[in-house]
């Protein structure tokens, strides 16, 4: 099992170099040019970026990114100075339902930034970092789709998924899952993390980063980055 894991990790960086070779010049290529954090490095000394996206729906091919929120974490220290929150100028209209969920209206989206500039800044910051997200399929899916649409190339993002970590922990403890147990807020409560009133992409990104800090402290001995990485 360990061997399999190591192979996968090496495979990760191998895949990065293959994609780099094919990537057109620009932000995507620059991102791929930076090596991923070493999977054998202690996880508490790795550089991370916690990302949360809000979207108009679940399908990256048909829906759009409404807002980006991210914050960097170096080792065990979240750097609030790196926090970013961008509302994206939409091409289509915000559906009523997602406007309710995210509290972002059409008007705000009209005044937002272009997807290209937000994405370029994200990739520049993400280079050399591991992404942290809660239920990372959304972030990977939408960022991946945007990269193909804008840069015409595929992206690869080493990822820590706090949802998967929680599922794994539950499975280890042989506890049945209750509805709602795996929601970000429920997990945070378990670790005595404060309840945030506001919900936007940035506060959720920060919430996710804090949750990962707490999850990491559950194992007493030093853990390696690869213990936390998620693969598809």
């Amino acid at each position: 099992m360990l061997l399999e894991c190591v192979e996968r990790c090496f495979g990760h960086d191998f895949r990065r170099r293959r994609l780099l070779a094919r990537a057109p010049a620009g932000p995507l290529r620059d991102y791929l040019a930076t090596p991923f954090p070493a999977p054998d490095a202690p996880s508490r000394e790795t550089a991370y970026l916690a990302l949360d996206l809000e979207t108009t729906g679940a399908d990256p091919a048909r829906n759009e990114i409404v807002s980006f929120g991210w914050v960097c974490m170096d080792g065990e220290r979240i750097d609030l100075g790196s926090a970013r929150h961008y509302i994206v100028r939409l091409r289509g209209a915000v559906s009523d339902a997602s406007a309710v969920i995210h509290g972002i209206t059409d008007d705000q989206c009209q005044t937002g930034c272009h997807l290209e500039s937000a994405l370029a800044e994200l990739l520049a910051t993400l280079a050399g970092r591991v992404m942290i997200a809660h239920r990372a399929e959304t972030e990977r899916g939408f960022v991946g789709h945007a990269c193909e649409a804008i840069y015409g190339g595929r992206i690869l993002i080493p990822t820590v998924d706090t949802l998967r970590i929680a599922i794994r922990a539950k499975a280890r403890q042989n506890r049945p899952l209750q509805r709602g147990d795996l929601r970000l807020s429920a997990l945070r409560q378990k670790y005595r993390l404060p309840r945030y009133r506001a919900h936007n992409a940035l506060s959720d990104a920060l919430s996710t980063a804090e949750l990962f800090l707490a999850q990491q402290t559950e194992s007493v001995e030093t853990t390696l980055l690869k213990n936390w990485l998620t693969f598809r």
Binding site: R44, G75, E76, R77, I78, D79, L80, G81, A83, Y191, L193, L206, A209, E210, L213, A214, T217, E218
Partner: peptide, 21 residues
């Protein structure tokens, strides 16, 4: 002010201030 801060999490029983700060 918030932008000038960092955030850390200490598990129960850990030393304060954090040893690796």
């Amino acid at each position: 002010l918030p932008r000038r801060l960092a955030v850390r999490y200490l598990r129960r029983g850990s030393a304060f201030p954090p040893v690796n700060e």
